[in-house]
Amino acid sequence: MEISMNLNGEDITAEAEPRTLLVHFLRDNLGLTGTHWGCDTSNCGTCVVWVDEEPVKSCTHLAAMASGHRVKTVEGLETAEGLDPVQEGFIQCHGLQCGYCTPGMMMTARALLDKNPDPSEEVIREAISGQICRCTGYSTIIRSIQWAASKERETAVTLEGSPA
């Protein structure tokens, strides 16, 4: 069947079987291997992408179900202005060791900060509770998200305070 979606801001169309899972559609049909394929059972969360601005586990989501919707992957985080603050935070605070869980962690973190710019540590832990980091680098992942949050708040304050 023909699957069309707005992917990272660009309209795309590709052929896939109805049974194709979104994670495989992105990786195999479109070559976007930033989204990782992990446990295949919606437990580990490395395959998290956004469908209409909401994080979902793409191993348990048919590509067909995403047809006609907006999909954003880790490749879509970076903008013309540079890396997303969440990406920067993961660099600054060593939020990854092996990097396997990183795309899912970052997509979930970005969604959290869009809803809540100043999350407590408890709220961050809850938000990423559907993601598994088997390097067990949770503390640095949480610090990375906190780094991004505070950087964005600083930027927001600067913008507000800057002369018109």
């Binding site: 969360g45 909401e54 994080p55 979902v56 586990k57 989501h61 809850e126 509770s129 559907g130």
Partner: peptide
Amino acid sequence: IADPVVRNR
């Protein structure tokens, strides 16, 4: 029930 990402679906 499940986790926040699964609860979205």
